[in-house]
Design a binder for these strands. Structure first.
Lengths: 341, 341
DNA sequence: CATTGGCACTCACCACGACGGAGTGCCAGA
DNA sequence: TCTGGCACTCCGTCGTGGTGAGTGCCAATG
């Protein structure tokens, strides 16, 4: 019974603190939220909550502030799902529907997500590893040079220049193109790579011998290029300006992290499929520097097959329910769009 | 004679202020720089400089600070070219040489430029308008759907999905591919578009009629897509953290501008070819919000043919000589790399 | 036994005033 | 034309005291 009220108090503290950005005291609490008890009672509860490590006071005789542990409890047990307004929903769908290609989808997602949450948004480009090969095109550019274009099921296009050791013959090229496509098209990346390796090893007598190897190498390179796994779009950095206080301690490391895409990827973490939103609060993450920032992320991809991750990075003091629904919603819309394409 | 010394004083003020970030007084000036005169003399000079609008004092009885006009004079007449250290040069070249494609070149340029200048770096992707068509590839994806891939001389690849109203015939497709390439390859974008338009208007009797129009439309769209003109890479935002003071007034609008690529493009301005570095100081720019920021930019591209612009955005109080040489150097290296590709 | 009102206490925050010091402008002399 | 001297101006800092929000504890109450 009292336990329940204590949780209500914690929730109220979190909500107030997130809204006002100021330590919240017992009196203000009972006034703003309609808990039907006196400030003194709340004070007792707060003392217990503090003992248990859910809240702290910045200094004696100040209000209370939630700790990471407090936010954690709040997110895990006290969050009520906050549906998006119709206007917001429409905004998301119309904005994302206007996208013309994969790049554009990602860009727009970042934008919409950062505006929705008024936070820094991060969207990882769909990873290669899970996608399949839609088509491979080989284009002769010069007698001894061709361009290999790799088109993936996600709509991503990778291209590589290939230098050859013998002049190109159109027929051989056509043959090679045909074989490569027969081998790779429809395959998942990983399988396509191994299948192509086989193709690359032609008997020296075959007319394909001089061409196959470099082309296969280039394609395999493009497929296993980890650089493209690390591609990320970031947006809404201007929202960092709202931090105001705690600039050096919070914004600087975050700005640095935003440039280090590797760090960002680690922050976003594993893609979690199926509408599950992951929340990492403050020091739970691997970077001390970012002890004051939280990450709200989820996986996305066609058929809820988590190809990549998108999310939001912000101060631990953030509107978790709102952010979580926004992240979930955008992930869902993007997934649907990838489905259609 | 005195005129000369006055300029020396101005230069000293600018250099000191840039270094220390604090208003500089007459005494400190004569101590740090070896002008062989007394503080009183310097004071007289400063009074004149102030009358002429080159410097101000933030308040009575404080040191002097350069005005925009002062920086302007400094940049135009007092700047001594500061050569880059060998180490820096090598760093730039080795770092940029590792790039594997156009995207990578741009990304790396941004990075190197921001690290070199410890400022926010902005690099515009090479514009379509000046580049030529290297090759067009048409790939059948489904009976009524094909992918048009446009390869440009800069190495950029644009692709468009094309939906058709009749099933594809391989021969016709080959024919179309041939014709399109005959028409467009080697042409400058603008000419290619008009030439293709002609190709699009086939007599209804021609077997090409059903296909040509949508394909030509897609290609023309890709070529004149202004979205790709606006592509920009930004890096080094973490350097904004060094602003420290004047946060709201300077950093916030700048962060916002960095997200608005249109604004950034306008800031970078016209591409200036041939090693000319443009400097726009504070309120000289079109945005009141950015009155405290300067832009140092230059054009780049193969054969000094300015395809696009790159530069640096920072506080008016910045190390202009150093920044200018860094910008010039990076532009030169990038141009060379584009030349080779 | 949980809840409540009362009460003394603790600090952060703010306004105020004093003061030191860096820097200036001006003037008379070299 | 330059220099040394001098009075003056303010900014920034530091201590000081008052105010108020908030707390912890305790005794009383239902």
């Amino acid at each position: 019974m009292q336990e329940e009220r204590r949780l209500a108090v914690l929730r109220a503290i979190v909500e107030d603190y997130v809204a006002t950005e100021e330590p919240v005291g017992s009196k203000a609490l009972v006034e703003r939220h309609g808990l039907g008890v006196s400030p003194a009672t709340v004070r007792n509860d707060m003392a217990v909550l503090e003992d248990e490590g859910y809240i702290t006071q910045p200094h004696t005789s100040a209000g209370r502030v939630p700790t990471d542990k407090g936010y954690r409890l709040f997110v895990d047990r006290l969050t009520t799902v906050k549906p998006m307004s119709v206007a917001e929903k429409r905004a998301v769908s119309t904005f994302l529907d206007g996208a013309v290609d994969l790049d554009d989808v990602v860009q727009r997602s970042v934008r919409v997500l950062s505006q929705l949450t008024r936070q820094v948004a991060v969207v990882q480009y769909p990873t290669l590893s899970r996608s399949t090969v839609r088509h491979v095109e080989l284009v002769a550019l010069a007698p001894r040079r061709l361009l290999a274009v790799l088109i993936l099921s996600t709509g991503r296009v990778e291209q590589r220049l290939v230098d050859l050791e013998a002049d190109l013959d159109d027929d051989v090229l056509a043959d090679l193109r045909l074989r490569v496509n027969q081998t790779a098209t429809g395959q998942v990346i990983a399988e396509a790579v191994t299948a192509l390796r086989g193709l690359g090893e032609q008997p020296p007598t075959s007319p394909l011998a001089v061409y196959a190897a470099p082309v296969v190498d280039a394609l395999a390179d493009a497929m296993s290029d980890h650089r493209s796994d690390e591609r990320i779009a970031v947006g809404g950095a201007a929202n960092l300006a709202r931090y105001g206080d705690s600039f050096d301690s919070a914004v600087r490391p975050l700005l640095e992290a935003l440039e280090e895409h590797v760090v960002l990827l680690k922050l976003l973490g594993e893609a979690t499929a199926g509408g599950m939103v992951t929340v990492r609060i403050g020091a739970e993450g691997p970077y001390e520097q970012l002890a004051a920032t939280s990450v709200v992320a989820t996986g996305y991809g066609p058929q809820d097959d988590a190809l990549a991750t998108l999310g939001v990075v912000g101060p631990t003091r953030m509107d978790y329910p709102g952010t979580m629904t926004a992240v979930r919603a955008v992930a869902r819309y993007v997934s649907r769009i990838l489905d259609e394409a």
